[in-house]
Amino acid sequence: MADRDQSEIGGEPLLRFRDDQPHDEPAVTLDAFLADQTPEPSGATAVRLEAGDDARALLPHLDRLALIEVSFPTFRDGRGYSAARILREAGYSGELRAAGDVLVDQLPLMRRCGFDSFAPEAEIDAATLRRSLSRYDYRYQRGADPIAPVWKLRGG
């Protein structure tokens, strides 16, 4: 995994696990993005998905996108985890950012769902984050990350 890169965007702390530069075009809403695809795409390259938005609507346009931001209005709302999986499974390789009520204890699972960038509302303690991301040596199931599940390791 790429080293964590702590930078800021618009004054907000941003945690990134990518080697490229943060995308700085403002993200448009899903509705605005979709409305702009007909008849001619406008060229927006960053979209923000609200928790209730259907990520599948983006699938025909993934190659035009450099940033998809998924909103977590509260850390209890887990719809964004599925949105991330769906986008990664469809082959999206651009920046996938979790924004909003993103807490350190949720971050390892978000990484497994394919998020590689985080814009948490409240600051995340660096030492706690380091522990939390390195704590588990093994995973039971396949995720959107390249980690081999234990059934694969057991297979030798």
Binding site: G78, Q106, Y136, Q141
Partner: peptide, 14 residues
């Protein structure tokens, strides 16, 4: 049990 333990996508269900 193993599949569902710390499932990355299904730990914050409705």
């Amino acid at each position: 049990r193993q599949w569902s333990t710390f499932h990355p996508e299904f730990s914050y269900l409705p």
